[in-house]
Design a protein around this nucleic acid. Structure first.
Length: 460
RNA sequence: GCCGUUUUAGCUUAGUUGGUGGAGCGUGGGACUGUUAAUCCCAAGGUCGUGGGUUCGAGCCCCACAAACGGCGCCA
């Protein structure tokens, strides 16, 4: 166990006035060697004989072996500890012993034991590590039904910590560049993406929808804040059953006034590379814990992301004998073929106008194209960022809304952004869960969010 | 919406040409003073997803339904 990179000192200071004084991660880092500690945690596993018992205790910071001897504990405490089943919560007191025989190099020689929250034998903890290993770590129906308990397992704990660092990295990237965090409503009247993927909700006798994106409301605030971002849930009623889709997902979006497509892409690349760097700095142990290749992540953090026009991508695919016609959006099967040889994410730019919604700005140099970009992740994880310049003149936005047969009325506030001092601007949306999934090497996007929502599951 | 696969103990699973359903984990009991997913012995725990059919006989063959999972379209 390595010394925590954020600094042991800081960890102790921030926690010292809490009801819980000692943390397993700190003990394994060696800062309590030889001292008496009181550990509060949960039983991960236990083994031993009638005279000596080894309890592997876990808390949010790690695991440690605790050695309990009958002669030292006394019969009563020893028997109570023997009855502490997997996931029972306990308080153990003892001396920290440096011992090579213990996993992690440290163990607790227990002097007193108290079971706080017992687990009954009739209802043992249903998830066993060995059974999970037999299931190959997969997301079985059983584990999804017991998600609230599955969160306690080592793999999920690692995932959730990595996820936390990714959220933190998004905030720090934007805040370091003087972006303002800004919130949009989740109940909305109109669509951003296709209308067929709207979740309809009854709203006092009217119909409302769950938002698909923060973007339109961000554009309304763009003239006030100029550089803004959010991290918020977006909702899409897609019946997609893939490893990349959720019906409720976390969306990191940004909007910048006076910015070109190229400038927005620079932010997209900067953000993704910053995220990769941050988890390498903050979550090395957790990434190793889920068997992620750190060299791959370093490559994603340290190298520039190439940019390729849609036309080039189509030509490349046609050169590989893939059937594709100009004007088609790239579906996943084609993305996958295109990205299979990528060693870092690639931007695809300048899609045909007919493949994209009305808010994308038409390329003034060639009105068959729009000034947009998608960022495609390697390893088959697909699109992680979509963005571009917005249609910003009043005349053009009205024409594009009418062309696409979209009603004007729900978008009046959006049109007003152009009516009153419209300026060139753009932004992007990043699928946070997709980034978590890709950077952690997960088999499925469900693995990186605590309570996944898809077209067939809203429980637990 | 479409295509495919699966469903056996609390969990993970084996189950041959149709002939009395086995195991590992977990749980209970026992043995063991240093274990590393401890080991060893014993025990409890199964209307084999539901309904129907074929057969002397169905976990296995046929039909219907259900649920779950995987994939596609669409997207972040």
């Amino acid at each position: 166990m390595l010394v925590n990179k954020r600094g042991i000192q800081a960890q102790c200071l921030t926690r010292q006035h809490m009801a819980k004084e000692f943390w397993i991660g700190d003990v394994q880092a060696g800062i309590h060697d030889g001292a008496e500690v009181e550990l509060k945690g949960w039983v991960k596993r236990a083994r031993g004989s009638n005279k000596i018992r080894f309890v592997v205790l876990r808390d949010s910071t790690g695991t440690i072996q605790c050695v309990a001897k009958r002669e030292a504990l006394g019969d009563e405490s020893f028997e109570e500890l023997k009855g502490a089943l997997i996931e029972a919560s306990v308080i153990l007191k003892g001396i920290v012993n440096v011992d090579e025989r213990a996993p992690g190099g440290h163990e607790i020689v227990v002097s007193s034991a108290e079971v706080v929250g017992a687990v009954r034998a009739e209802t043992p903890f249903p998830i066993t590590e060995s059974a999970m290993a037999a299931a190959d770590g997969g997301e079985t129906e059983f584990l999804l039904d017991n998600r609230h308990l599955y969160l306690r397992t080592g793999r999920m704990t690692n995932m959730l910590k990595i996820r936390s660092s990714i959220f933190g990295a998004i905030h720090s990237y934007f805040r370091d560049k003087d972006f303002v965090e800004y919130q949009a409503p989740n109940f909305v009247a109109g669509a951003v993406e296709g209308g067929s993927t709207l979740f309809e909700v009854p709203y006092f006798g009217k119909k409302a929808y769950l938002t698909q994106s923060w973007q339109l409301y961000a554009e309304a605030a763009m003239p006030a804040l100029e550089r803004l971002y959010t991290i918020a849930p977006s909702f899409r009623a897609e019946k997609s059953r893939t490893r990349r889709h959720l019906t409720e997902f976390w969306h990191a979006e940004m909007e910048v006034a006076w910015a070109s497509n190229a400038e927005i892409m620079t932010h997209g690349e900067g953000l993704v590379r910053h995220i990769a760097r941050t988890i390498l700095d903050e979550r090395e142990d957790e990434l190793v814990g889920i068997d992620r290749d750190l060299d791959l992540l370093a490559r994603y953090a340290d190298n520039p992301y190439p940019r390729m026009r849609y036309d080039e991508a189509v030509e490349t695919l046609q050169g590989m004998n893939v059937e594709i016609e100009w004007g088609q959006d790239l579906d996943y099967s084609k993305e996958k073929i295109l990205t299979q040889d990528f060693d870092v994410p690639h931007f695809l730019t300048h899609y045909p106008k007919i493949a994209k919604p009305f808010y994308h700005r038409v390329d003034p140099d060639d009105d068959n194209y729009v000034l947009c970009h998608d960022l495609l992740a390697p390893e088959g994880y697909g699109e992680i960022v979509g963005g571009g310049e917005r249609t910003w003149s009043e005349e053009e936005i009205l024409a594009r809304i009418d062309d696409e047969g979209v009603p004007r009325e729900p978008y009046q506030f959006y049109i007003d952004t152009r009516t009153y001092g419209g300026v060139p601007h753009g932004g992007f949306g990043l699928g946070v869960d997709r980034v978590c999934s890709w950077l952690s090497g997960a088999d499925h996007i469900r693995e990186v969010i605590p309570f996944p929502r898809d077209s067939r599951r809203v429980t637990p």
